[in-house]
Computed example of a mutant assay.
Amino acid sequence: MATPQRLQTVRRIQRAMATAYAGLGAWCLLHSYSVVALGFTPRYVAMSNETTHLLMRCFGAQAMTCGLVLGTSEMTAFSFTAFGLAMIPYIGWNFWFSGVGPARGMINSLMWLDFFGNVFFMGGSLWCAKVLKEGANKKH
Rank of each mutant, 00 (worst) to 15 (best):
residue 127 W to T: 12
residue 68 L to E: 01
residue 67 G to R: 00
residue 56 M to D: 07
residue 110 L to F: 05
residue 126 L to D: 10
residue 129 A to M: 03
residue 126 L to P: 04
residue 126 L to S: 05
residue 78 F to I: 11
residue 80 F to A: 06
residue 67 G to V: 04
residue 35 V to Q: 05
residue 96 W to S: 09
residue 75 M to V: 14
residue 114 D to F: 13
residue 96 W to P: 02
residue 51 T to W: 01
residue 115 F to Q: 06
residue 132 L to V: 03
residue 91 I to V: 14
residue 140 H to Q: 07
residue 71 G to I: 02
residue 118 N to R: 04
residue 128 C to I: 05
residue 79 S to T: 14
residue 63 A to F: 12
residue 111 M to W: 07
residue 69 V to P: 07
residue 79 S to F: 01
residue 101 G to E: 02
residue 72 T to F: 05
residue 109 S to C: 10
residue 2 A to Y: 01
residue 129 A to T: 06
residue 23 G to Q: 15
residue 73 S to D: 09
residue 23 G to E: 09
residue 25 G to W: 03
residue 125 S to V: 02
residue 121 F to H: 15
residue 131 V to W: 00
residue 81 T to C: 07
residue 106 M to K: 07
residue 113 L to W: 14
residue 61 A to H: 04
residue 2 A to L: 08
residue 118 N to F: 14
residue 102 P to L: 14
residue 130 K to G: 15
residue 3 T to S: 14
residue 64 M to T: 03
residue 24 L to I: 13
residue 69 V to W: 11
residue 95 F to H: 08
residue 91 I to K: 11
residue 88 I to K: 07
residue 22 A to E: 09
residue 30 L to Q: 03
residue 107 I to K: 04
residue 76 T to S: 12
residue 87 M to H: 12
residue 27 W to S: 05
residue 66 C to H: 12
residue 106 M to C: 01
residue 28 C to M: 13
residue 20 A to Y: 14
residue 66 C to N: 13
residue 108 N to Q: 10
residue 72 T to R: 10
residue 47 M to P: 00
residue 106 M to N: 03
residue 2 A to V: 04
residue 140 H to W: 15
